[in-house]
Design a protein around this nucleic acid. Structure first.
Length: 448
DNA sequence: GGACAGACTTGTACGTATATAG
DNA sequence: CTATATACGTACAAGTCTGTCC
């Protein structure tokens, strides 16, 4: 049944097209772009086309060797158009460039492989090529690659005078001619299939050689590391968050604080048993690199201040409670009394600094207990460090796009089953719906 | 073979929900 | 328990690619 149009409107046309996947469409009034109402990603229709997309990429496996052999040969073709085509396919295959359609005057000045211009490619003998251009969404692609010597020669030829800035490198090539050529190898093969193929291929090779062990977060991190390699291949970048540097510093500070805690414990051990210094060696008891007296002083001041703040807050809260219960609140004098604990801490630190000695504390302290505390701190430091490294590595790489669009979801399912990590760790609720076809279709032995 | 119409995928930022550390 | 970090879902613009017409 045809649904009623919104009040005061009528359908321009009602179609019953079994091929199309859209429900309604209209032309946007600003630049005439077509807008579509389509089913959501979790629908059967979308799932099927997603499945087909990855199956197409898998099919490329059968032809890739021939294609590579051919373009390597055609890099030397006498026909310039063929030589350009071979070079372009090389770049698309090796470096995961997008096809690069021609764009209109009014659109952003971004490029892909076929639309690369003179100034986007710099040649550095003997065989290094520097790409620097704005790709889709004006994301910068800035990479340096070593290339096949014939590719280097070709690019040099394609840039030869009278070509100058603003001119296209592949002036005898369009995306349609390139895709037409590719479709000779395999039905439906186009430039974008290479991105899917290479992304999934890289992921599958990484997962094959991987031996993920340890806790679930550690295994997830292994997966993410592979995911990140794919994202880098596809140049999926993101803008570094505003507070990134500050956050890194904060984490670094926290790690330092943990190291300092260890230092204190070790000093306390010395307090209990001075002979340990000989046994464990001087270095064991030293302050970690990057931590000096000045830092320690600042850290201690902060700790004291923190405690003061805590006491004040607690005081206020207690008072609120008293009032709520209909009782009188405590006098400011009580707060001063409570704050003495912080003063004592400050005095203790001051004394320590003067005497350069840290006394063992806690009830019935023993070397054994301290050793245990140290062990706990060690693991905390280790997790913090990996977390901080992870964050730094991810600051400008977006993992989502490759996971959602390029990595065959069945690979993720295989990882999940092989290493016994719940799929929920990799796919959110919506993604599990989107990839239902993948989740229910494979076991741990499936191969891309 | 080039221009344009049309259909479908990809990609990031953003606001909000949720998890986590302190 | 609360502040903050992170994850999630979504919007919608920007791509790719096919088909048709000249």
């Amino acid at each position: 049944m045809v649904p009623k149009p919104p009040e005061g409107h009528k359908w321009k046309e009602v179609k019953h097209d079994q091929e199309g996947t859209w429900l309604a469409m209209w032309q946007e009034n600003i630049n005439g772009a077509y807008k579509y109402v389509m089913l959501a990603a979790n629908s059967d229709i979308k799932g099927q086309s997603d499945y087909k997309k990855f199956e197409k990429a898998r099919e490329l496996k059968k032809y890739i060797a021939t294609i590579r052999k051919d373009y390597n040969k055609e890099l030397k073709s006498e026909v310039m158009a063929e030589r350009q085509r071979a070079t372009a396919v090389y770049l698309i295959d090796q470096f995961a460039l997008r096809a690069g359609n021609e764009k209109g005057e009014d659109e952003a000045d971004t490029v892909g492989c076929c639309s690369l211009k003179f100034e986007h490619v710099t040649l550095r003998p003997p065989d290094t090529v520097v790409f620097d251009f704005l790709g889709k969404d004006s994301i910068r692609f800035h990479e340096e690659f070593k290339v096949d010597s014939q590719v280097f020669k070709n690019l040099k030829i394609f840039k030869r005078s009278p070509k100058k800035e603003g001119d296209e490198i592949f002036d005898r090539l369009t995306t349609s001619s390139l895709n037409k050529h590719l479709s000779n190898y395999m039905n439906g093969l186009t430039a974008k299939v290479f991105r899917t193929y290479n992304a999934s291929w890289v992921m599958s090779s990484l997962l094959k050689e991987m031996k993920s062990e340890g806790t679930i977060p550690e295994k997830v991190k292994d997966y993410n590391n592979a995911n990140r390699k794919v994202a880098i291949l596809c140049n999926h970048k993101r803008t570094v968050a505003g507070g990134h540097a500050a956050q890194m510093e904060k984490m670094g500070d926290r790690i330092k604080a943990l190291y300092y805690q260890e230092y204190r414990i070790k000093q306390m051990m010395l307090d209990l048993d001075p002979k340990l210094k000989k046994k464990k060696g001087e270095a064991y008891f030293a302050l970690k690199e990057g931590i000096d007296d000045e830092w320690v002083k600042g850290h201690q001041d902060a700790m004291v201040e923190e405690q003061r703040e805590k006491i004040r807050k607690k005081f206020e809260k207690d008072n609120e409670k008293l009032v709520a219960e209909g009782q009188k609140e405590m006098k400011p004098k009580e707060l001063d009394e409570r704050l003495k604990a912080a003063d004592e801490l400050a005095d203790k630190f001051k004394d320590e600094r003067k005497r350069k000695k840290i006394e063992a504390e806690g009830k019935s302290p023993s070397i054994d207990k301290f050793e245990q505390q140290l062990e706990k701190l060690d693991t905390r430091i280790a997790t913090m460090k990996t977390q901080s490294e992870d964050r730094e590595q991810n600051k400008d790489v977006a993992l989502g796009t490759s996971k959602i669009n390029y990595i065959d979801p069945r690979l993720t399912v295989v990882f999940s089953k092989k290493f016994n990590v719940p799929i929920e760790r990799f796919f959110s609720k919506t993604l599990r719906e989107k990839f239902e076809w993948a989740i229910k279709s494979v076991d741990e032995n499936w191969e891309f």
